[in-house]
């Protein structure tokens, strides 16, 4: 059973005051996230990431389609005991301290006061707010609130965590903490579904990603499969090139770059069969230093899909 499933999830917002028209924020999103996976939900601003997360949390209701979490329809209150959610730019009550807020939430999760106390202390330490536990949230910075948000998402030792841009507002240290935190969750077997437009985070963390653009799923799959599929070519570095061979290289390979210590970098096309090229070059007296595939970075891949996404329908 997948941890998260969505089935043609669609959301229209009514926009315009005098003549409200539907605006399709999300269009037929079908996804499935396996248990234990770290899943990156990527897309540019306004793509529909937060809309999807709000639908999964049943903060908004779908125009059509459906979604299930841990096998139950979204909105099943019992399932909320087993999940955590961090909203985009979260806000909590100004007049409470971090400790009070989390204790309140812990009690809602069904912990007794004593259990709540230890649980709250442990998550506050985990997000690095141990020292500020008694401070009112009013005096917290953006990044500190973000950490409170993470703490409350992890409070109940969830089986599935939903994070809407978990890195936003965090300093480089904080981002690394969050990366480590997500990796820690994965080790524990927790399913993590997070949205982001920061691709390096996704590259570092995710088993699988989905790219959403203009409200539609543009691509999804295992990160290495997606990028390998987009193989651009190979970079072959050779050395000890005999004079006779060197003279023929530009004609045979087009792109030839001389590197230090007599090394030469050659660029091969994606379909160049590097094994064959290497044996030929060896036979002609060169030694092989290295061979590397040249891939689209996630960024290139992302750009390509986002640019080619069709504009979303409005005023249906």
């Amino acid at each position: 059973m997948p941890a998260i499933e969505t089935e043609a999830l669609t959301k229209d917002y009514l926009v315009g005051f005098w003549r409200p028209r539907p605006y399709r924020a999300l269009d037929g999103m079908t996804l499935s996230v396996e248990s234990g996976e770290v899943f990156g939900f990527l897309g540019p601003n306004g793509a529909g990431k937060s809309t999807t997360l709000k639908l999964l949390m049943q903060l908004i209701f779908p125009t059509s389609g459906s979604a299930r979490i841990l096998g139950s329809p979204v909105g099943d209150v019992a399932v909320r005991r087993r999940i955590g959610f961090l909203a985009e730019n979260p806000y909590y009550y100004d007049y409470l301290t971090a400790e009070e807020l989390l204790t309140y939430f812990a009690r809602l999760f069904g912990y007794t006061s004593a259990e709540a106390k230890t649980r709250v202390a442990s998550v506050l330490d985990q997000v690095g707010l141990g020292a500020e536990r008694r401070m009112r949230l009013r005096s917290f910075s953006k990044g500190m609130i973000q950490r409170v948000g993470l703490a409350q998402a992890l409070l109940n030792e969830p089986e599935v965590v939903f994070l809407d841009e978990p890195m936003s507002g965090l300093d480089p240290l904080g981002r690394r903490d969050v990366r480590d935190l997500i990796l820690g969750l994965r080790k524990r077997g927790c399913t993590v579904f997070f949205s982001s437009h920061i691709l390096s985070d996704a590259e570092a963390l995710c088993d699988r990603v989905a790219i959403v653009a203009q409200g539609k799923l543009a691509a999804s799959g295992r990160l290495n499969a997606l990028l390998a599929f987009e193989l651009q070519g190979w970079e072959l570095v050779i050395s000890n090139v005999p004079e006779a061979l060197a003279a023929t290289l530009p004609a045979r390979f087009g792109s030839v770059t001389s590197l230090s210590h007599g090394r030469v970098a050659l660029k091969l096309a994606a379909d160049a069969e590097p094994d064959r090229v290497i044996s030929t070059l060896r036979a002609e007296g060169a030694s092989v230093e290295s061979l590397n595939p040249i891939r689209h970075s996630l960024e290139d891949f992302f750009m390509q899909h986002v640019r080619s996404a069709p504009q979303r329908a409005t005023g249906l």
Binding site: M57, L59, V77, A78, R80, R81, I83, F85, A87, P90, Y91, Y92, Y93, F105, L108, F109, G110, Q152
Partner: peptide, 14 residues
């Protein structure tokens, strides 16, 4: 308005 409701309504609370 302040969206603190997101925090509460995603807890086991109808």
């Amino acid at each position: 308005e302040k969206r603190s409701v997101y925090g509460l309504l995603t807890k086991p609370l109808s």
